[in-house]
């Protein structure tokens, strides 16, 4: 186990003593067995050292989802950082670089982005770190995996942490992604948080309304943009009625969208024109969106009940 840097001669390796008669035993590779047999005694002794850090690297490389080892790694890093000698090299920056080097496959795991958050929180006092780098890394990952949930969640956390609501850069980023794929719902969701997550002014509402209308024009059958439009109105508590001319355009045969019909039905309800709403629900259930026939029947029953 020794390397040029680290010596483990004093460690008595403790192989996994698989409890007899248990299920789900895994035939570990020799390499994984070896690493585990050395890291376990260190973990039990809670040794917060560089050589222990090295073994966490080895373990996580083999089993990226090993949350206990991630937890241990954080304790090591946090301890060394606050100790007299500190972390070697560039300290926490090296730690972020290491995270990045773990590669795309690992980035799907629940652990790595949570870990990165913890390190960023440790680093926040460090004036030398350029946080724009975080956005570059996130963008690189999203470039390969446009809808990666954890990565989007991390980007949203950055927006919250560094107060980037309505920032040019985030608006441009989502617009770029949506130009590439107008159906990227993760980008729409991110834009919603960036635009409306903190507060909502009339200017922002108008800007987003113009934007989403334009994008609906690009792809009238795209549920993401229609959801955004409805969300915008709901957030502002605005009546849908003034959308009527816009929506009607998309109920014409060469440009038809079931989402437009749905909003039109809501508008008719607001206008107390229940017969027209009911007709739309019949049309949706009967022809345009028959997989949801029972849902449209339910919607119809709701309005006729006067709910």
């Amino acid at each position: 186990m020794n390397t040029s840097q680290y010596n483990y001669d004093d460690i008595i390796p403790s192989p996994i003593p698989a409890t007899p008669d248990t299920l789900t035993q895994i035939l570990y590779s020799d390499q994984y067995k070896l690493v585990l047999s050395y890291i376990r005694p260190l973990l039990l002794a809670n040794e917060l050292s560089l050589r222990a850090l090295h073994l966490t690297t080895k373990t996580i490389e083999l089993v990226p989802a090993h949350y206990t080892i991630w937890y241990y790694r954080y304790n090591i890093v946090a301890h060394l950082q606050s100790s007299k000698d500190g972390l070697p090299g560039n300290g926490l920056i090296d730690e972020l670089d290491w995270c990045e080097s773990m590669g795309i496959s690992t980035l799907k795991s629940y652990q790595i982005w949570n870990y990165r958050k913890l390190i960023i929180q440790l680093i926040q006092t460090d004036k030398d770190y350029d946080f724009n780098k975080e956005f570059e890394i996130v963008a690189r990952v999203l470039d390969e995996d446009e809808k990666n949930y954890h990565v989007w969640s991390y980007r949203k956390w950055l927006v919250e942490t560094f107060n980037l609501y309505n920032s040019e850069s985030e608006l441009k980023y989502t617009a770029d992604l949506l130009n590439k794929d107008v159906r990227n719902n993760s980008a729409w969701n991110h834009r919603f948080v960036v635009s409306l997550g903190e507060s909502l002014s009339q200017d922002v509402f108008q800007r987003e309304l113009d934007y989403v209308k334009k994008m609906i024009g690009v792809a009238p059958t795209n549920p993401s943009s229609w959801n955004y439009l409805k969300g915008l109105y709901k957030k502002l508590g605005k009546s849908l009625v003034d959308l009527k001319p816009f929506v009607v355009k998309y109920t014409e045969s060469d440009n038809l969208s079931v989402y437009a019909y749905e909003i039109l039905a809501d508008i008719h309800v607001e206008e107390k024109n229940l017969v027209k709403s009911a007709e739309i629900y019949d049309l949706l259930g009967g022809k345009l969106d028959s997989i949801r026939v029972n849902y449209w029947k339910y919607k119809k029953s709701q309005i006729t009940l006067g709910v």
Binding site: L23, T24, Q25, I26, Y28, S29, Y32, A65, H66
Partner: peptide
């Protein structure tokens, strides 16, 4: 039976497997 070594990826999920 015991799981092949490829299942090491699930080594932090034994109760889930079960």
């Amino acid at each position: 039976r015991q799981l092949p070594s490829g299942f090491s990826a699930l080594d932090a999920s034994h109760p889930w497997i079960l």
